[in-house]
Design a protein around this nucleic acid. Structure first.
Lengths: 328, 328
DNA sequence: CTGAAAGCGCTTACAG
DNA sequence: CTGAAAGCGCTTACAG
């Protein structure tokens, strides 16, 4: 292994000078700098990052905790974060909380032990404030983690856009499948939808709205969709708004099993705009989350000198596709 | 920050002893050990991992390079690896090569600079042998990376299972959509399928087989599927075997657009058994890759003292679902 | 502007 | 079995 000493010897300077050149310290004059750089090149010198970390107490790593990387939205987010981190010479350390608060806590402290530059957490579920005692900057992403500043899409406003869309199409019997109400994101999306519907509602032309609750996954969509669509009572919605694309895709699957025609018999909407949303049949109307922007913003917080970063909410954009139309 | 010194002081022992207790060195006698452990507890001492890394030249991290984490199969694999690594107290560092050999090389050397315990690479595309000069154990996973030992599903045998299945159902006009022939996995799956079909073929009851090539993604499935199914000549297959589930799902989408009934008009098969394969309509017949076992095996190589780990090929299992039947 | 030196927090031969 | 000490490879005040 070649070290700073080898480089220093070859360049005929002190190790301090080598270190300064490598850290792009302006102080070093041109001739020395060149000698160092050429020695670095010749020796193919790579600094020992552990040694650097020991001195600086910092490592060029961003820690990322997500509930489940096989969730396409989180995978998308992870990819953007990795790309953004790489721009700044940082690698990404990934952990799954499996949507479990206990596992999450363990993963977080394991990652914190490695003193990353910063940590991004997509929270599993609401927990109290454990008051992590660390100087690693922590940012909540998409779903709030404890009291850490949150960067997220405006879930509530996005849901309101969906509510508007369905109302304008003429739907008056609507089911909303919410995500877990133990999560802030689950509540925000639900509340945004319901509030807007209540605003739109009028006595002359009443809306009936029923809400259900599940996880954010395919399975819940299938199950709850079936429950809604096969209920024995006379009430059957003309539209189902789901709190995530995965839920919506599950609903679509059930609807197909029940021989319903989409969107004529039933309009369906999602939230996230995962890649699959535009590949299924019919393509899904949904809210596009600005993943690149979320990643960029969250990382800017981590790198910012800002003592008290403000929360940032980014608007999503409705993408209207084939899964919605006026009711038959 | 509390250090070994603090613990040593409180326990009234030397730092060496603290270190030995922490590394579960049997030498330390019970009474001292207990005092150290209780001091560790009281002070909530966490060893500085950078310092440890500097001494031991090792860090409890597994590096993982995949072409694209938003590919559901790689996400699945990453999750299994993370779980398996956590069992051994290791974290996972993730990088995407974006299926580009150049990016891959950069990502790999960036990760190698961090001296991980081991590295798992799902290769982007075949490259020459760059002869990485490192003592970090590297294992190829799923797709061979340079000359590093490969842990993978038996792609060829899996494809042969699909060939058997389609043949037995009575299909004689078959299209195969291969993955990139620049990758070993693309070639293995294709060759396995073709070889078996040639074995099954006979003069009395000839099989016609046409092969196409694309990427492994949804988009290629849609495009090539359309090309196959709308060709102006009289030849139209009764079955399309695709080299990945994503390709197959793309084909399904096109087939639906063309108002073909699946599986009556067209049987479709995939490869991988991603979560989505059992959620789409109809559910997809495919080869299940044993991701947990792949992850476990690959990590065992990394941790093994074995100087020359042998290659390991694990058989996949055919999962027969609704997307295949006898031709109409 | 550059060098000499201290020290980050560990682990591990080396004594005893 | 335990302690004292060296040293891993850097960075960064401190002199000059």
């Amino acid at each position: 292994m070649t070290t700073v000493r080898d480089v220093a010897k070859m360049a005929g300077v002190s190790v301090g000078t080598v270190s300064r050149v490598l850290s792009e310290n302006k102080a070093v004059k041109q001739p020395l700098k060149e000698r160092v750089l050429s020695a670095v090149q010749k020796l193919d010198y790579k600094p020992n990052l552990a040694a650097r970390a020991l001195r600086t107490n910092r490592i060029d790593v961003i820690a990322l905790v997500v509930p489940d990387i096989t969730n396409p939205f989180f995978a998308q987010l992870a990819k953007c974060i990795e790309t953004e981190a790489a721009k700044r010479g940082h690698s990404v350390m990934l952990a799954n909380s499996h949507d479990d608060a206990n596992t999450e806590r363990k993963q977080i402290s394991a990652l914190l032990d490695r003193s990353p530059r910063g940590m991004l957490v997509v929270a599993a579920a609401d927990t109290g404030d454990l008051g992590y005692n660390t100087d690693v900057p922590i940012v909540s992403l998409d779903r709030r983690f404890e009291n850490f500043p949150l960067v997220s899409t405006d879930h509530s406003e996005g849901s309101a856009q969906i509510a508007n869309h369905l109302y304008k199409l003429g739907h008056r019997k609507i089911a909303y499948i919410a995500g877990p109400q133990s999560t802030e994101v689950g509540r925000s999306r639900r509340d945004g939808f319901i509030s807007r519907m209540e605003e739109l509602n009028s006595n002359d032309d009443p809306v009936t709205l029923r809400t259900f609750e599940g996880l954010f996954d395919y399975g819940s969509g299938e199950d709850i969709g079936r429950q809604i669509l096969t209920a024995s009572d006379e009430w059957r919605p003309t539209a189902i708004a789901a709190a995530s694309d995965q839920l919506a895709i599950g609903v679509l699957r059930t609807a197909r099993d029940l021989k319903l025609e989409i969107p004529a018999d039933l309009s369906v909407t999602g939230f996230d705009d995962i890649a699959l949303a535009s590949l299924i049949v019919p393509r899904l109307t949904t809210i596009r989350q600005p993943t690149e922007l979320l990643a960029e913003t969250a990382l800017a917080y981590v790198f910012s000198e800002n003592d008290t970063p403000e929360e940032k909410t980014i608007k999503g954009e409705i993408v209207i596709r084939g899964s919605t139309s006026a009711p038959r």
